[in-house]
Write a protein that binds this DNA or RNA. Structure first.
Length: 923
RNA sequence: GCCUCCGUAGCUCAGGGGUAGAGCGCUCCCUUGGUAAGGGCGAGGUCAUGAGUUCAAAUCUCAUCGGAGGCUCCA
């Protein structure tokens, strides 16, 4: 073996060989423990992005590791192929979404193969194929049968830009999540999934090992609050106003009511005298966007409707206002205003000169509130006052029934029939229909008002190809008569499914993507489910990750998993809770950010040598701090080679050589500075086409090889954090691979080695195994690789010092290659073969960690004087306390520190894994 | 405004009550028959700041400053 490391050649070669020998096929094997590793499936948007590599290759490394540890691993891949991006791209390029999507998929498949991941392509699933969406449709029907899918009228988000409705989860700050364009509220009849029925169960994360932020985000999104519903009579006939409150203990302090301007009662209750003012206000609000309305700290505006309501707790007559600080989308769209105890109501009352009444008094006398001179609302604990029979009840800081006053008032409301305990959710039902073309058809038909599900035997309802899909605000399928016309009276639903529905169950389709009698094969499901480790971006926190949990729970409740559960029982596995959640462990990767040039601005003075300046002084200054009349160079450092700075001077590049004796002044860094402390590095930014900082993985693979790119991505970032791209840093992992190659290429050493040296390297190997295991376990891929680099350095040194013999060398190489196999699969396989081991490296067992072999025998006993290290003594690893103290106190370092005095106190700290034992001598 | 996480070498990051670590970068030397390279030596850190706890604090506590992410008229 003598050639150089040629990544490209060996990578292509092994990818083919792996394919041919099918070593990544995953098959049910009840005798082996299973591991379902899943990484979020890509959208076939065109080219594979470096972000895909960043997400997928570490996941692949971990899946490979699990496999080598004896697990039967399923690691599938597919495409989330329906949806607006394809349709928008198709519109702008004037090609059919099928074509666009399929050519992208073909291209991305090839790119995915170049990663050298252990994807089982036999299990590939593509959500826009009829074989796939047949089952999306089938699920929809099942949901309809049990009332989870329903058609209803609701205020929905309408995007003018996209000409379709969107789910709440796809609207962020009043803007469409994808295009950033504003959405408006519209009353429309649409299809919904009753996700709110599962709100409480979705709040239970007991069996989930998920990142805390995701759980918090889902919890906030679901937004459960406990309180009461109370109905206020109005003076305009039988039109009561329903309100929800979390503070029923403040009911007596309600001095007015506020309806959202969109509330359906506004028109009914408004008095003739106020009608013009109310309509004017509503017009004004309508002209504002949702975004403007949600701006914080804006002046509270509103208008009186002329109507009054009766507060049921004290029969008081209170005015009804409308104001835009009350949102139609939350609660009932109406509130009882308690200005004394709610800051928003307080501000409104002050602005409109409405009365304020204190009904909760704080405990301390000096804090007592008065209606007239409150500066702000009081929402702390206290005692109920001005509340008739409830006076004296103690309102604590607690929410819901945990607060005694609230509990007492709720009981009283229910006993008197004035109200009832209630839970309100911020979460709304999932709006599932879209007025767009590129989605799964909704398998429903209409005969007049009657809804008729498409019979099972007619599934799938196939999405026709010859459709004009330009958006018009109506579903493109409404213009396609052969599709929608079933017969003279029956027509098909022409809206399509939200793509998030299709991606809510893809993990199930991977189990048996070609199964045409069921969405998935029961035995496969029984064996593989649930997903053991799911990896992907945190941006899906309240969309995909919430939807798929909901979906799984519905499927469980309608019995879709029953057969799989039966198989489990039959195989002696416990199906209890196996189908409650789709993915038990979730980890989010961070984002690889783009780099943008950003160096220090410097003033350089010196003398010109040809085109170059030879500087004697370089000072870092602000970007616009050129002193008038300055004679020298001023500009941004855009690059540096050794001690030559490349300055950008208003578009012209100036070279400045900085000799070692030049004075360098960096205000942020005190003391003497040197040239490499100057910032010539890159500023981080999101990668985007418009910034031109998108990194193309194909070119990197071409240049460095897939293994180096994989290792760079795993080594140079904290995977869960992400960070800035810096191609220069690829040299680190590249050097590692190169060195390992060289060590292997040199072949077995021709010396005998020495036992101590071999023992030493064995110890280091086992210490490395432990760290690599921990790194992979904890998704800390960077530490796992750093440790292997260290081991490589140690091995290299030992070989140089001729301390390793041929037998030990071969054994170490064998283990070293297996250790690197999950990270750099191609080079590992190549070296494995070249060293004469049997194919394949990836079918080997993971090196076993042996704690005895990892243990140090001789360690340094550290002598500390007053906690400061002052010297070391070589001792046995298991040295005992008495002996250590004796040695330490009599050591030269200690004697020097003690200067003849007796130690005041001595403390022995035994060494534990990896750390040296210590003795602290207090003088 | 609230919540979560984070400030360690020039950069990217490990570690974490008991000697300050890795890779890259940088200096100097060697090699110039692995060569759009290789080898060796080395420099560089008040572990953000300030207080507290301790025999001992980069590590634990509190405060301050700085950064990232999330939530935010949620009744």
């Amino acid at each position: 073996m003598s050639e150089n490391y040629q990544p490209h050649e060996i990578e292509v070669k092994w990818q083919q060989r792996w394919d041919e020998t099918q070593i990544y096929r995953s098959r049910v094997d009840w005798d082996r423990p299973k591991h379902y590793a899943l990484t979020m499936l890509p959208y076939p948007s065109g080219d594979l992005h470096i972000g895909h590599w960043f997400a997928m290759t570490p996941s692949d490394a971990r899946a490979r590791w699990m496999r080598m540890r004896g697990y039967n691993v399923l690691f599938p891949m597919g495409f989330d192929a329906f949806g607006l991006p394809a349709e928008q791209a198709a519109i702008s390029r004037n090609i059919h979404p099928w074509k666009w999507t399929y050519s992208n998929i073909e291209r991305m498949r090839e790119q995915l193969r170049s990663m050298g991941a252990m994807f089982d392509w036999e299990r590939e699933a593509i959500s826009c194929t009829p074989e796939y969406y047949k089952w999306s449709e089938w699920f929809f029907k099942k949901f309809y049968e049990v009332g989870v899918a329903y058609r209803g009228s609701a205020l929905v988000n309408w995007s003018e830009t996209l000409q379709t409705v969107l789910a709440n989860e796809q609207v962020i700050d009043g803007k469409d999540e994808r295009t950033g364009q504003p959405v408006v509220h519209k009353m429309m009849e649409q299809w919904f999934f009753a996700i709110t029925k599962y709100a409480d169960e979705l709040l239970d994360f007991d069996i989930l090992d998920w990142p805390e932020p995701i759980k918090i985000m889902q919890t906030n999104w679901i937004g459960r609050s406990e309180g009461a519903r109370v109905s206020f009579r109005t003076e305009v006939g039988d039109h009561p106003i329903e309100i929800f409150t979390t503070r029923p203990d403040t009911l007596w302090g309600s001095t007015f009511m506020v309806l959202a301007p969109e509330h359906e009662l506004v028109d009914i209750i408004t008095s003739e005298a106020q009608r013009a003012a109310v309509e004017h206000y509503i017009d004004e609000i309508a002209a504002e966007t949702e975004i403007e309305r949600m701006m914080e700290h804006r002046e509270k505006t509103g208008v009186f409707t002329g109507a009054y309501a009766i507060n049921p707790v004290n029969d008081e007559r209170i005015p009804i206002w409308i104001a835009d600080y009350v949102m139609i989308t939350y609660g009932t769209g109406a509130i009882m205003a308690v200005p004394a105890h709610d800051q928003r109501d307080f501000e409104f009352a002050r602005a409109q000169d409405l009365p304020i009444r204190v009904v909760i008094q704080p405990a301390a006398m000096e804090d007592l509130l008065s209606d007239e001179d409150m500066a702000e609302a009081y929402d702390g604990p206290g005692t109920m006052v001005n509340s008739d029979a409830m006076d004296g009840s103690v309102s604590s800081k607690d929410k819901g029934r945990a607060n005694p006053a609230i509990g007492r008032v709720i009981d009283w409301l229910e006993a008197t029939g004035k109200g009832e305990e209630s839970v309100n959710y911020r979460l709304h039902d999932w709006l599932i229909s879209r007025q767009r073309y590129w989605g799964g058809p909704i398998p429903m038909m209409y005969d007049g008002d009657e809804i008729i599900p498409v019979p099972d035997e007619d599934l799938p309802v196939v999405l026709p190809e010859d459709v004009d899909f330009m958006p018009t605000g109506r579903s493109p399928l409404t213009y396609h008569e052969p599709f929608f016309k079933v017969d003279d009276s029956v027509r098909r639903e022409t809206d399509t499914l939200d793509t998030f529905m299709c991606s809510s169950w893809y993990q199930l389709r991977y189990l048996s993507p070609h199964c045409d009698t069921a969405p998935f094969d029961a035995e496969e499901a029984a064996y593989w489910l649930p997903v053991d480790v799911y990896t992907g971006g945190a941006e899906h926190a309240v969309m995909h990750l919430l939807y798929t949990r909901f979906f799984t729970k519905v499927l469980r409740d309608i019995g879709v998993f029953d057969e799989a559960a039966a198989v489990m029982r039959q195989k002696g596995r416990d199906p209890e809770r196996a189908f409650d959640e789709p993915m038990t462990v979730l980890r989010n990767q961070g984002q690889v950010l783009g780099a943008e040039r950003q160096g220090d601005y410097v003033l350089c003075s010196g003398r010109s040598v040809g085109a170059k300046m030879l500087a004697n002084r370089v000072e870092v200054v602000g970007w616009n701090e050129t002193p008038a009349g300055f004679d020298g160079c001023f500009g941004e450092i855009v690059h540096r080679t050794e001690n030559v700075l490349h300055l950008d001077m208003a578009g012209v590049t100036q070279f400045v050589e900085v000799p070692p004796d030049a004075e360098i002044i960096i205000p942020d860094i005190p003391g003497r500075n040197n040239v490499n402390q100057l910032r010539h590095h890159l500023e981080i930014q999101r990668m985007s086409k418009s910034k031109g900082n998108v990194v193309n993985p194909d070119q990197l693979v071409e240049k460095y090889g897939a293994d180096a790119v994989r290792c760079y991505l795993m080594f140079n970032f904290d995977w869960q954090k992400g960070g800035p791209w810096n191609e220069n840093n690829i040299k680190g992992p590249q050097g590692w691979l190169h060195d390992v190659w060289e060590i292997a290429a040199k072949g077995a050493p021709a010396v005998e080695g020495d036992p101590a040296g071999e023992r030493d390297i064995e110890r280091k190997l086992h210490q490395t195994i432990a760290v690599v295991n921990r790194g992979l376990e904890e998704f800390s891929f960077n530490t796992a690789i750093a440790e292997q680099m260290k081991f490589k350095n140690a091995l290299k040194a030992a070989l140089r010092e001729r301390r390793i013999g041929p037998a030990a060398w071969k054994d170490v190489m064998n283990q070293l290659i297996r250790l690197m196999a999950p990270f750099a699969p191609h080079i590992a396989e190549e070296l494995w073969e070249r060293l004469g081991f049997e194919y394949s490296a990836h079918l080997q067992a993971w090196p076993a960690y042996d704690a005895d072999k990892a243990r140090e025998e001789q360690v340094e006993l550290v002598v500390l004087i007053n906690g400061k290290p002052r010297g070391t003594i070589e001792v046995a690893v298991d040295i005992e306390r008495e002996r250590a103290l004796e040695l330490a106190v009599s050591s030269e370092a200690a004697q020097r520190g003690l200067a003849g005095k007796a130690p005041k106190r001595t403390i022995f700290i035994p060494g534990r894994n990896g750390t040296d034992p210590k003795v602290n001598i207090v003088v």
